[in-house]
Each structure stands twice: as C-alpha cells, then as structure tokens.
Design a protein around this nucleic acid. Structure first.
Lengths: 191, 191, 191, 191
DNA sequence: GCGTAAACGAGACGGTACGTCGGGTCTTTAA
DNA sequence: TTAAAGACCCGACGTACCGTCTCGTTTACGC
C-alpha cells in the first residue's frame, strides 16, 4: 500500500509556500524567482521542481492554503442579506498582501496559457460556482425572476472585484462591497 | 531651433513597434524579449533602450499607435444609442490580437509598479475620461438623474470589458457589448 | 571529506583550456573573447566565469597545462653544457603558437594589474627560480666567482628571450639560443 | 594653394593627445577608450577617427610628442662615457607615467598586428638606430673589435630596458642604468 | 537490522536573456 | 572641409535565473 522510499517532507512543502508568499509580499511577483524561493526556504531547487513546475503554481497553492475561510457562503434566506454579507467577507479577506497575490496570479495567467487554464477552471470557476449557488437559491425562493440570467449577475460581481484588484482605482473596502451588492441587487430586480 | 546631432530615425521607431506587436501576436507577451524585438526589427538593442526602458512600454506605445480610431466617442443626443454604439465599436476594435496585447499590458502592470503607474494614469484614465464625458452629457440632458454616480457606471463598463479580456469566460462580441450596454442603462435609471 | 553537490567537470575544464589555446593560435589574443571560448568549447559562459575571472587567467592555465616538459632543468656538472642545453630546450619549446600565447600573457599583464601580479609571482618567478638554481649550483662548484650577482645573469637570459618573443626582431631558433648562452657565459666569467 | 574648407584644428589635435596621455596615466591603457578620450578632450569621436585609426596610434603619437629630448645621443669620443650617459638619460626620461605608456604600446603591439608593424619599424627601429650609430663610431675608433656583432650589443641594451619596463622586477633607476652599461661594455670587449 | 528506494541539500552544468559599454559609421547643424 | 553632437548597428561584456544533472546524505518501508 505505502510506496517505498523516503516520504515527502510536509515541512519542506509548507516552508516553500510560506517563502513564496513572503517574497511576493516583500518584492512583488515580478521579482519572484524559483532560486529565491529555494534560498529563502532553505531548500534545494530540485525539491521545488519535483512538486511544482512553475512559480505560478507555487503561488496558487500558497493562496489556496491561506484561504479556507473564504469557503463559507452565507444562506440566511434573504438575497440582500446574503449578498451583502458575502461581499463584506470577501473584501475583508482581501488584505493588501492577498490583493497582490491575486493580482499576480491573474498576471501569470496572461503570460502562460498552461497556467491560465488551470487557474480558470480551478480557482476562478470554484469561486463562481459558490456565488452562483447562492443566487440560484434566491431564484428558487422567487426573489429573482426566472427570466434573469444568473451568470450575468455573477459576472458583474467578479468583474467589479477583479477590476479593483487589478487597477486599484479605489479602495477594496466594505463601502465598495456594499456598492457592488447594491448594483447587483438592482440588476437582479430589473427587466 | 534644430538641435545638433543625427536626428532620431522615425523608421526605426516604427519598425520596432511593428516587430513587438507581431511577436506578441505570434508567441504571446510571456515569450517576448527585448532581444527578440531587436532581431525581428533588425535594430540594435541599444536603440530600443535609448527610447523605452521596458518591453511593456514598447508594447503600450504599439497599442496606442494602432488605436487612433478608438477615439471617436459618439454623441447622438440619446444615451442608449451612444452607449450601444460605443460598446459596439469597442468590441469590434478588440480583435484577438488586440485582446492579447491589452491582457499583456494589464499583466505587466501587475509585475512592475513603475509601469503600472503610467499605464493607469495614461492609458486607462484617458479611456475612462472619454466614457465619462459621454455620460456627463446625458446627465446634463436629464437622461440620468443628478443623484447617480457616473464613476460607478464607468467602472461597471470597464470592469466587465476587462474581465472578459482577462478571463475569457465568453466571447468579446457584439452580443456581449449589448449586454453590457443594457446593464449600464438599467443601473443609470435605478434609484 | 567529500563536499556535497555536483563535482566540477574535469572535461569541461580541459575543453575550455583547449578552446582558448586553439582560438589564440587561430586569431590572436586580441580577438579572443569569453563568448568565443564558450561557444568553441560548447560550454556556458557561467561555467568559465565560475572558475576564472578573466580570459588572461584562462590562457595562463592553458599555457601551464601544456608546459610540464619545460620543468626539466639540466644538471650535468658543467655550466656551459647546462646553459646551452637549457636554452636549446627553451627555444625548442617556444613554437610559434607558444610564442603567441606568451606574448599575449605579457600584454595582458600590462593591461590588468590584478593579472600582472599573479603572472609575475607565479609564472615568471617560477621560471626564474629554476634557472637561478642551475647557476647557484655552478657557483658552488666554483665555475662562477662568488662575487658575481646571479640575479643579473638570470635577468639577461630572460630579458633576451622575452625581447625576441615580443619584438620578433629575429628568429627564436637554436642559433639564437647559443648566442644567449655564450653572452651569459662571458658575463659570468668577467670582472 | 590653400585647400578649401575649414582647416584642421591644431588645438583639437593637441587636446586629444593630452587627454589620451592623462587617461592612461590615471587608469591605465586597459581602461582607455576612444569614447573616453573624446569626452575628456571635449571632442567628437569622429574627429579622432578622422586622424587616427586606433587608440594605440593616438598613444604612440602622444609618446612621440613628449619625447624630443630623448633624441640627444652623446658623442664624447669615449664609449664608456657615451654608454653610461646614454643610459642615464634614458632611465631619467622613463618616469612612471612614461613607463606605463611604453608598456601599453608594447602590449598593444602584441594584440594588433597592424600596429605591431608600425611600432617596430617606426618607434623601436629609430631608437635602435641611434644606439647602433654610437656603437659604430666606437668601433671605427677601435674601441670595439671589428669582429663584434653590434646588433647583439644593441639587443642586450634594449632587451634589459624593456624587460624592466614590462616585468618591473626592480626599479628603473640610475643604478640599473650603470649595470646595463657595464654589462654591455664587458660584452663589447670579450671574445 | 538491513537493504531498497525515493526525497533531500548542495551545487555545477548548458542555456537564454538581461541591461550596459564601447566600437566604428552616419547624418545632421554650425563654423 | 572640419568640427561637435548624437543616433545608429553591432558584438561582447559580466550577471541572473532557468530547468536539469549528479553527487553524498537521510528517512522511511518491507524483508
């Protein structure tokens, strides 16, 4: 059952992810190098390449590691309450460091088709699924007309969030979260 | 009046921008190198570095070069018509090659703070100003209530456009342009 | 005992030295470049810089590599025989290729103080020591008066050899070797 | 008679030679660049290339410029006196700066065959001719036997001088000048 | 407890691109 | 025609990382 040989070092794995996160926070993803991660983590390059093939994958796993709390999608029975709470939690979780990590991942996806695919079908799609489930429950309750396209609503939410993350045209705070929630609620009622 | 010394070669400038655009179209921005641009353009690296300091700046100028037609913002007297036409023109102008170029610039902005600043205050801000002017005229005509925050409407438009450009969750076609226009029109009327 | 990490490639070392020697022979030291050595040897530049810091050092090691036979200083019991044999061997060993290499090293020493030091205290001094040893034995045997300054004799030998190497005012052949030997023998007897 | 156009600037010529000499004295010939000379002299590169093709030629002319006093070869009627005076003047003229310039020229001759030829047939040969003339006069007077090869004597003098210049195994002072003179006098009498 | 076998650190290796420097040429205006 | 200015193409510089490799060493499991 158990394969022979020395087992993977869980500590090395964690040290590498921590080192990557730390370096991105300090110097930005643009300055991040595999060599730098290895040195910072006190690990050989080979140990990194054994388990990840690009630095984007390392960072993606580092982000996933520190994002278990995001999972909780509210379900109070009221669309307005759920949406506002969801967005408040989301903006709360997006600290400056996290913002930088997320922006880096989106950038990496533009430069590497391979990574783009895994980023879209993994990270992004799972986030979208959660939100869509919340809206679908509201539609079943009759809070949203059956004619409304839920995917468009989901798109508006994440478009606004990502635009803020990437362009930094304004703060990613609770006030912004409320504005997004209100816009989507209005769109969910119209037409 | 005329300064001494050999004048800058306008041809070299154009060849470099064309080479950069061509290489991004062919292999993507991630594969783009200053060395490659120089070779493709038949130009020395020094000539590139004399006028631009990063490849992102070269690509940005290449994009600006081929985007004079975007400038035309419609002004028919009807918000709905203007908005729909503006978005139709925008999605029409965003060919796959242009999409790739724009995505690259946004990625580069995430990796290089220096470039991020010039990208935001130059390229992005000028685009936003144009659209805001259109909406302001509609507000003066009374088509949009004085209480509505125009910046939020502008944000929705560009957020949706950029999200499509970056995530490619669906096609950037005229149908998508109409959906965006309709969403914004609804938000402009609400509350 | 054994240090960790991949051991240095002895083959790479030898290939580099051979490439350097070959290129100097073909195009002269003035045309020699680190890039050229790397290409010729099929080696990365980094591998060269890891072990040598200038091309002069590479060439110096290449010369030392192919000069084990020089070491044999004769000791027959007769100063005249020893000196003549030593100079014959020396001029015999100084093939046109070797002449070019030696001239290059002396030139490099004029352009780079760092290298000059290692060249003088290493290469040149060891050659001088050997010859001086030979003369010292003759002095002990009484063939040279105790009052004679051996260093001056050594200086005459190498001055004449190097002048021929650098100025090429005449051939570096056995006839020349005999002339040098005779001059020094005469000086060793005088006053 | 007078050709048309702007005449050559004698001042530019002198400024260039002075700049070259100054830069070699300050940083050594290895650091010397055409660009540096132009900047130091406040002259355009083209102006240098119009009159000289390599930096070695510039330095050679700079050396010749500042070496009119060397020309005086003594002629007292006594070989010993003449030789000692000649060598005293020579070592006196070889200041540290001049030593560096001469060493540079010899180095340049090893790296550039073109320059080597002009250096040998011009600079070196003319020096040798002067000394040989002095020895020839002594031979006519009977101070040197007719069987003695004067070229060998000349060779010994310049070999010893150049060896000191290039290897710096000891000081280039009057004491050294006397030693050289004595050695040559001894060789002129022997056999 | 001993051998097999994978993981680990270290670090050298062949590469590619970096951004800079200087070479020698060319193209302009001014003297 | 010469000169200053400065842009141009070119090639080499020395460095940084890439991803791979070859070592000696460590740590588990199955015999």
């Amino acid at each position: 059952m158990a394969q022979p040989g020395r087992p993977r070092s869980e500590q090395a794995r964690r040290t590498i992810l921590a080192a990557a996160a730390k370096l991105v926070a300090r110097n930005g993803y643009g300055e991040l190098t595999m060599e730098g991660i290895a040195t910072e983590a006190g690990v050989s390059k080979q140990t990194i390449y054994r388990w990840w093939s690009t630095k984007a994958e390392v960072v993606l796993e580092a982000v996933n590691e520190g994002a278990a709390e995001m999972a909780a999608v509210p379900d109070s029975g009221s669309l307005a309450d759920d949406l506002r709470l969801f967005l408040r939690r989301t903006v709360d979780a997006t600290t400056p460091v996290n913002r930088r990590l997320l922006a880096s991942l989106m950038a990496a996806a533009q430069l590497d088709d391979q990574f783009a695919k895994s980023f879209r079908t993994g990270f992004l799609a799972s986030r979208r699924r959660e939100l869509r489930g919340m809206l679908a429950r509201a539609q079943e309750r009759g809070e949203i007309a059956a004619s409304v396209d839920l995917d468009q609503l989901v798109e508006v939410v994440y478009a606004l969030l990502w635009y803020r993350i990437l362009v930094q045209h304004g703060p990613l705070d609770r006030r912004f979260g409320r504005q997004v929630a209100d816009s989507v609620l209005r769109l969910s009622r119209a037409a």
